[in-house]
């Protein structure tokens, strides 16, 4: 009975995802095909003066830009279904390859930041709630509220000024040192280039989880069961370990999984500032230079990424929370 419950859940999620992606495809395509931007021109870019009308037509023909929209949509959608996302105009390479390559380097950055912001944010939230009303609580709250009003890219710029210009500890950017062959790059170099972007991403990302954890723990501390625990003589750390932790850890973990959307957005900004060659930077290039196939591919891929986070968050809830896990057996 439980088995069928979970498989039915997964099946429903798969249906939801398919519908979601299909809808994204349609909407994105409609948006792009009504856009005032001429893809041919975007493709040619700076070479505009040297390209004649004939060449332009040839390019438009090559990309299938002269076909009616519906035909173009089904052509594009059909290729998508076969796993062909088209060819990126900037990178002159298949979109799927570009995304896979860039995503791997983004993933390292995002996971580092995600884990750091999760742990730091959770600890800060717990500290604030346990010391509610103290100067420490006020400092943590002030920090979180200020950070949630701070433009991520500005925080990144400040770190850049402090750690590369004033105290030249870290390199200015690029995922790898300049002038070194790719195979000569050590993992240590990669780490050195990743620290600042990851730090930026985590100090701005922890505000949400910290404030949420603080509010949740204050709720828990005001609950009947904590009141009863206090009446039973429990206090301080024992009280937190027995009743606080188990009641706030799950919401915190699921919230963190549900924050993939902000994580991706943060990565876009941070990669731009630190010239980190990830998917975020590819997104900015695709949209500022009009690389339509790549942009469409990224929209779909990032949708999948966010969906995965939400799905994991829900699965963890079902797996850990006894009220759902054992709820069916009664």
């Amino acid at each position: 009975m439980k088995r069928t419950g979970i498989s039915r859940f997964l099946l429903r999620q798969a249906g939801k995802l398919a519908l979601l992606l299909a809808a994204s495809c349609v909407i994105t395509f409609i948006l792009v095909s009504h856009s005032p931007i001429d893809p041919t021109q975007a493709y040619i870019g700076a070479d505009l003066l040297r390209v004649g009308a004939e060449q332009r037509d040839a390019i438009a023909e090559y990309w299938g830009l002269n076909d009616p929209p519906l035909q173009r949509f089904f052509f594009w959608f059909g290729s998508l279904l076969q796993g062909d996302f088209g060819t990126s105009m900037i990178h002159r390479a298949p979109v799927s390859e570009v995304i896979a390559d860039r995503f791997l380097s983004s993933l390292v950055l995002m996971i580092t930041a995600w884990v750091m912001s999760g742990i730091l944010g959770f600890t800060a939230g717990v500290t604030a709630a346990m010391k509610r009303g103290s100067w420490l609580d006020r400092a943590i709250q002030w920090y979180c509220y200020t950070l949630s009003s701070t433009p991520t890219f500005w925080a990144g710029l400040l770190l850049l000024i402090v750690f590369t210009v004033w105290l030249p500890i870290f390199p200015v950017g690029l995922g790898t040192p300049a002038g070194v062959l790719a195979e000569d790059v050590t993992w240590l170099d990669r780490v050195r280039h990743m620290i600042l972007p990851a730090l930026t991403l985590s100090i701005t990302g922890l505000a949400n989880i910290a404030l949420h954890t603080r509010a949740k723990l204050i709720d828990v501390l005001g609950s009947d069961y904590v009141l009863f625990a206090r009446a039973k003589g429990e206090e301080g750390f024992v009280l937190f370990r027995r009743h606080g932790l188990r009641n706030i850890l799950l919401p915190a973990i699921t919230l963190q999984f549900a924050s993939f959307s902000e994580l991706f957005g943060g990565a876009v900004l941070v990669e731009q500032i630190f010239s980190y060659p990830g998917l975020g930077r590819a997104t900015v290039e695709a949209s500022t230079r009009g690389d339509v196939p790549l942009l469409l591919g990224i929209v779909l891929f990032s949708t999948l990424f966010v969906f995965t986070g939400n799905l994991l968050s829900e699965l963890i809830y079902r797996w850990i929370d006894p009220r759902i896990r054992e709820g069916q057996s009664i």
Binding site: L31, V284, L295
Partner: peptide
Amino acid sequence: IDLFLSVPHLVLLLLIAFVTG
């Protein structure tokens, strides 16, 4: 609502800003 929340906000912003020129 779910659909709009399912694309990373910044990506959606870039897409729409790009489309509107």
